[in-house]
Simulated assay, not measured.
Amino acid sequence: MSARNPGMQLDLEWVSKVRVNHQAVLKRAQQIQARKLAKKQWQAAWLLKAVTCIDLTTLAGDDTPSNVHRLCLKATQPIRHDLLKSMDMHDKDITTAAVCVYPARVADAVKSLKAANSSLPVASVATGFPAGQTHLQSRLEEVRLAVADGASEIDIVINRMLALTGQWEALYQEIRQFREACGEAHMKTILAVGELGTFTNVYKASLVAMMAGSDFIKTSTGKESVNATYPVAVVMVRAIRDYFMRTRHKVGFKPAGGIRTAKDSLVWLTLMKEELGDEWLRPDLFRLGASTLLADIERQVYHYVNGRYPAYHELPLA
């Protein structure tokens, strides 16, 4: 992982001056979506890059040790070995970036990865995911328990009420406490942008989260009605850029929720490359939160290698 973001004192003057030009954001997002995407071997290479940035996720009420185990095995070997061999990429250690689960399943994931002799990090959602509407003490304890079980990354959710009512000092203090509870674990802060109302609010919440020491800012839980969208991403990555210009600390970005196709992943990589540059095109500064995306990427890689799409039974379940 990249160097931690130590955060800074809350600068309310900076936060209060934020104004986002709604139309300009929409126009920029349209430009990025209209870009011509790479084809043939270039597309295959970008898709493998996308795989290495995926937080392979299962956040379902019916999660069991066995489906978490299967997820972990898929994370360690995300693309079929023979397909990688055809591309001369079989020895490049292509894995996903991490496995992401609920706190109660962290120990299962750690055990499975250890058995597979893998050093992949386990990320755990926490702090009353997805709504964040539980008492502060129980949210903090959830972080500590997930870390104790072996999670090396914690995806926290902010208390949207504080952002919606402009209580930035209170939000800052809560996130600082979560950061402290994380200890050595990296902290990703989920803004739940679909519930923040305006682009200006999204930008302010992004800034406050970074000032409080977030190592990543993440769009959504995947459980809201609106999740990762390109306009919101433009706002968040501009906040990351401004924070970097001011502090020289790099903060990562993680879109999550509704990212399902290989084409989607290429647009997200394009957005990162254009807005933040090649340095951010690495798993320590860019993650894609997804559960079904990998299946479509593997399908496209299969098509690149074999010239046809696979039958349903030809690829293992993602």
Score class of each variant (00 low, 15 high):
Ser2Met: 01
Gly7Asp: 05
Leu12Tyr: 00
Glu13Ser: 06
Val15Asn: 02
Val20Ala: 10
His22Tyr: 12
Gln30Ala: 08
Gln41Asp: 14
Gln43His: 00
Ala45Tyr: 04
Ala45Cys: 04
Lys49Thr: 12
Val51Leu: 09
Val51Asn: 05
Leu59Met: 11
Ala60Trp: 14
Pro65Gln: 10
Leu73Tyr: 08
Gln77Ser: 11
Ser86Cys: 07
Asp88Ile: 15
Thr95Ile: 13
Thr96Arg: 09
Val101Lys: 08
Ala104Tyr: 14
Ala109Lys: 10
Ser118Asn: 14
Val125Glu: 02
Thr127Trp: 00
Leu145Glu: 15
Leu145Met: 12
Ser152Glu: 15
Glu153Trp: 12
Ile158Arg: 07
Thr165Lys: 12
Trp168Tyr: 14
Glu169Pro: 01
Gln173Thr: 06
Phe178Gln: 06
Ala185Glu: 15
Thr198Ser: 15
Leu207Gly: 06
Ala212Cys: 09
Ser214Glu: 01
Phe216Met: 03
Thr219Trp: 00
Gly222Pro: 04
Lys223Val: 02
Glu224Pro: 01
Ala228Lys: 01
Ile240Val: 11
His249Gly: 02
Val251Asp: 15
Arg260Pro: 05
Lys263Pro: 02
Leu266Met: 10
Thr270Ala: 04
Met272Ala: 11
Trp280Leu: 03
Trp280Lys: 01
Phe286Pro: 00
Phe286Leu: 04
Leu294Trp: 02
Val301Asn: 01
Gly307Thr: 00
Arg308Ala: 10
Ala311Trp: 02
His313Glu: 06
